[in-house]
């Protein structure tokens, strides 16, 4: 039995400690906003926060996050940077198919939480692990800057 704190609630799961967090979230906790894209940490679709840091849930065993506060896309709107990023995403019409966008938003929110005024190079470095097949990158850059301005003006 393993206890995880997911989006503010402690929950118990009877799983093997090496189970990747992604499948616990999607198949057992039924939090399907976190996506499967590659299974080997190359695409970022499964990005969630552990104590505010972005991690790839598909290659993170659940044993590695026991005792850490997990936040998924379903709850990131409750954080100041998450809310600012989601708002900027809507204002600039970032999403297309939308499948990668949970991961994009989680990476962007974590970036702004540690670097409120990221330069282009900071954005590239923080977001290069998040693939988007629809090609929304130019708008992602612009939306992160928009969110930075909004979060900074609070």
């Amino acid at each position: 039995m393993i206890t995880l704190e997911i989006n503010g609630s402690a929950r118990e799961f009877a799983v093997s400690p090496d189970m990747p967090l992604l499948w616990l979230l999607r198949d057992l906790a039924r939090l399907t906003g976190t996506k499967f894209g590659c299974g080997i940490g190359l695409c970022g679709a499964c990005t969630v926060h552990a104590n505010g840091e972005p991690i790839r849930a598909c290659i993170t065993p659940v044993s590695a996050v026991a005792g850490r506060k997990l936040t998924t896309i379903e709850a990131v709107g409750g954080t100041p940077t998450g809310q600012a990023v989601q708002q900027a995403w809507l204002e600039l019409g970032v999403v297309q198919c939308g499948y990668c966008q949970s991961g994009q938003i989680m990476s962007a929110a974590a970036l702004l939480a540690r670097n409120p005024q990221p330069a282009d190079a900071d954005i590239d470095a923080a977001m290069a692990g998040n693939l988007c097949r629809c090609g929304t990158y130019d708008r992602i850059r612009a939306a992160i800057k928009r969110a930075a301005v909004r979060a900074g003006s609070r």
């Binding site: 939090l31 399907t32 996506k35 989601q86 019409g93 999403v95 939308g98």
Partner: peptide
């Protein structure tokens, strides 16, 4: 006019349901 996408809100908060996200009762994988 540049109407904002109607599918935007559900795609930024994780609630959009793709085929991979369906979870009917009794589902196995």
């Amino acid at each position: 006019t540049p109407v904002a996408r109607l599918d935007g809100p559900e795609k930024v908060n994780g609630s959009a349901t793709f085929g991979i996200d369906v979870r009917p009762p009794g589902l196995v994988f």
